[in-house]
Design a protein around this nucleic acid. Structure first.
Length: 278
DNA sequence: ATGGCATATCCTATATGA
């Protein structure tokens, strides 16, 4: 099972790139961010023709997230990150897909920093940490995939020098990310490639792509139940090199669900094992 | 301190992104 996350930076403009990627890489699940489109403008039909069911949550101009699934329909669990009913940004979707809980998130960028946007980023992150705690220990296999807008360490960027004041590298942002991992989540890419600089984003300026001057900000976190299934993790870099590309590349994991450990059976139920149903 | 580029919409100008 291949699960990917891809910040498309505008799904209307990016649809040809998205369809080409889906056709070539055939992910089973794709979490998309930055749709930048209203619900009614989501390209449901072209995606169905490409073999993908969709759940989506749009918004005019900004944000917007979707979960695509091949062969099976994703079952929606929630469309909002709990904790602030006044938050009207479309940044969160949660669904069950073929036995796996899939979270698709688009964490606020937070620039300029300091300021209200950075405060919003940290507040959103705190809400995520609070909600993720329950997901982590739920006993269900869970993947939290998305654009976290956090460069976890200086090893995850070509050169931190010109980004030191950026919201993506601030100690507060990194501390939130570490606190998430401390709950028990596995950072898939880092788990399998501890010594390799891997990037998922290259900005449009100053020939960053041509120079491979990138950042790692798109992450797939696995909870302890799902972590033993991790087989491979990587970035479809070729997508970033295409004409009219997003500034992000799709990032993915391959999972072997046969490795799912049997769930702990509560003692009260376990004791009934001997009484056969008639 | 600014800008480099790309997306969107209230589109020959401005807000946002990372």
């Amino acid at each position: 099972m291949k699960i990917a996350t891809y910040n498309v930076n505008g799904i209307k403009t990016r649809l040809p790139n998205l369809l080409e990627w889906l056709e070539r890489e055939r992910p089973d699940v794709a979490c998309l961010q930055e749709l930048k489109a209203l619900d009614g403008a989501f390209p449901q039909q072209p995606l169905l023709e490409a073999g993908y069911h969709s759940l989506w949550k749009g918004q005019r101009s900004w944000n917007g997230v979707a979960i695509l699934s091949r062969s099976v329909e994703p079952v929606e669990i929630r469309r909002e990150l709990p904790g602030d009913p006044s938050d009207d940004h479309s940044r969160y979707l949660e669904a069950a897909v073929d036995g796996v809980m899939v979270v698709c998130l688009y964490l606020p960028n937070g620039n300029p920093q300091p300021g209200p946007k950075f405060d919003y980023k940290l507040a959103w992150f705190e809400r995520l940490i609070a909600h993720a705690e329950g997901l982590c220990g739920s006993g269900h296999p869970v993947v939290m995939a998305g654009d976290y807008n956090v460069v976890p360490t200086d090893f995850d960027i070509y050169n931190p020098r010109s980004w030191l004041k950026d919201a993506l590298l601030q100690p507060e942002s990194r501390d939130c990310y570490q606190r998430l991992l401390q709950q028990g989540w596995i950072d898939s890419i880092r788990q399998l490639h501890p010594d390799q600089a891997i990037f998922t984003f290259w900005d449009y300026f100053r020939k960053h792509w041509e120079r491979d001057a990138g950042l790692r900000i798109d992450h797939l976190l696995l909870n302890p139940r799902l972590a033993p299934c991790l087989l491979e993790a990587g970035v479809d870099r070729w997508v970033r090199g295409q004409a009219h590309a997003s500034d992000h590349a799709p990032t993915w994991v391959k999972l072997d669900r046969a490795r799912l450990a049997p769930q702990a059976v509560p003692a009260a139920r376990k004791s009934r094992r001997s009484s056969k149903p008639s």
